[in-house]
Design a binder for these strands. Sequence first.
DNA 1: CCGAATCCCGGCAGATACTG
DNA 2: CAGTATCTGCCGGGATTCGG
Lengths: 125, 125
Amino acid sequence: MPQQEHTCMIRGDGGRTLRAILDRICNKWTLLVVATLDQGTLRFGDLHEQVPGISQRMLTLTLRNLERDGLVARTVHAEVPPRVEYALTPEGKSLIPPALALAGWAIEHVPQIEASRAAYEDRAG
Amino acid sequence: MPQQEHTCMIRGDGGRTLRAILDRICNKWTLLVVATLDQGTLRFGDLHEQVPGISQRMLTLTLRNLERDGLVARTVHAEVPPRVEYALTPEGKSLIPPALALAGWAIEHVPQIEASRAAYEDRAG
DNA sequence: CCGAATCCCGGCAGATACTG
DNA sequence: CAGTATCTGCCGGGATTCGG
């Protein structure tokens, strides 16, 4: 069965479903945070260390959105000093395989894309 | 083998590879245009019709980027009126399967995500 | 028919400083 | 430790107009 018969999944509703997910996971940090949480439960500080370059602000916002969408569970422990733990929900875990598919494609094709882009820049300035 | 042993693909270089691809395909229109071109060669006007809501400007920019990255081939026919055709390169076609994986996930999980988000809005305002 | 050029706006994201 | 507050710049993207 030819591939294009499947792409109706993407184009289906004028791209609304695709857009809905893209809007959620295609920002700068979301996928990286999800992948990091695939290790298991982590504290805010751990995440801040393990996701290189993320600011406190963006980590907070990213986690809030993930929690809101039911992809990450947030647990506050009533202690001093405070301890807050984050973990993927089953829903969140289910995002990993398609993310890996994309990452696999990236690893395989990005070098050639970079080359193509470099060549284009040369021609056009 | 547990999943998290694979997520190093995503986290690998601090997310640089992932970011490289995300920066390219995760804008508002790219994936939609690629999916539309999976049908085969199309003219600018065809694309403009078949991708609902895209402006001429964004279609032009999206196609230029895809051409630059070697995912789409652009063919200009020396005629009047001018005719310009766009088609996926093999490189571009190879993006379809991972895109479908993501779309499949979206179709399966977006309803639940919407529900979770709606519930969250209710609680928090 | 196929674009390029210009103007404009909202929202993302960084830096920094402060709080329970 | 785990956030919030505020200020700021940047850029994606829409509308519109003009050119070959």
